[in-house]
């Protein structure tokens, strides 16, 4: 009888807090949704002591559409990527036709980085995939954060557990930790250098660190971001990829 009572209490308190977590996740999603976005960025991939730097130009619209073109290094110049809701296409100048990235290929690291295509595509679906609890309030980089533990609702979710630290002021997840089913820490993901751009708070720097493979780090640094752009419909089409 006692045990049942405890269980009930736990369940009840969980539900009570879930409302808050729901709120937080909703805010995060809203924060990541743009009418339109254009940005220039750098991706620095470090592995085995070797560093590779990529420069790209990216366009985004809503949560579902994203287009990206590689500018540097020369070897990858002209490589393009297009995301439309659940679909992802790549265009390699050497292959002429755009290729759809699907199934197991989505699990590979983007350009050898620590972010998989899947990581990029899942970022805005936490509400659907996870149940959360607010575990604590902690200070990260001088900012007051909620520490939220997310547990996957289904066994098909790639990361069964995430812990995120969300800035209480601007709802930016300043830090994330991604865990394996066994509870082993797989990756950490931090966002920083938050700046106010055209009235929006935006993290200009992201760092993804592979916690299994020592010294494997990917940094994304935004050089220029603007939200007030009129993007042609064509940008998010296969035609743009081939152009």
């Amino acid at each position: 009888m006692n045990l049942l009572f405890v269980c009930f209490l736990l369940l009840f308190s969980g539900l009570a807090r879930a409302v808050t977590v729901e709120e937080i996740l909703t805010k995060i999603d809203a924060n990541l949704t743009y009418e339109a976005r254009e940005s220039s960025l750098q991706m620095v991939v470090t592995k085995n002591g070797r560093t590779k730097t990529y420069r790209m130009h990216s366009f985004g619209r809503g949560q579902e559409e994203m287009a990206m073109e590689y500018l540097e290094p020369a070897r990858d110049k002209g490589t393009k990527m297009l995301k439309k809701s659940d679909d992802l296409w790549m265009f390699l100048p050497s292959v002429e036709k755009p290729q759809k990235i699907s199934g197991h290929m989505l699990r590979q690291g983007l350009m050898g980085s620590d972010m998989s295509y899947e990581d990029l595509m899942e970022s805005s679906r936490w509400q659907a995939m996870y149940n959360g609890t607010i575990a604590a309030e902690e200070v990260i980089e001088g900012r007051k954060c909620w520490k939220v533990e997310l547990k996957a609702k289904e066994s098909t979710v790639s990361y069964p557990k995430r812990i995120i630290w969300v800035d209480q002021g601007n709802y930016i997840p300043l830090r994330q930790e991604l865990f394996a089913l066994s509870g082993m820490l797989l990756k950490s993901w931090t966002m920083g250098d938050v700046r106010s751009i055209e009235g929006r708070e935006f993290p200009m720097k992201m760092v993804v660190e592979d916690q299994l493979q020592k010294g494997s780090v990917t940094q994304i640094i935004f050089e220029k971001v603007t939200f007030k752009v009129a993007l042609a419909e064509e940008v998010f089409s296969l035609r743009w990829l081939e152009r």
């Binding site: 289904e154 790639s158 082993m184």
Partner: peptide, 16 residues
């Protein structure tokens, strides 16, 4: 060594 693999359902797992 650490092995990282997907479960049959698709979740990532890792063990030493």
């Amino acid at each position: 060594v650490v092995l990282e693999a997907r479960t049959r359902d698709g979740a990532i797992n890792a063990l030493g």
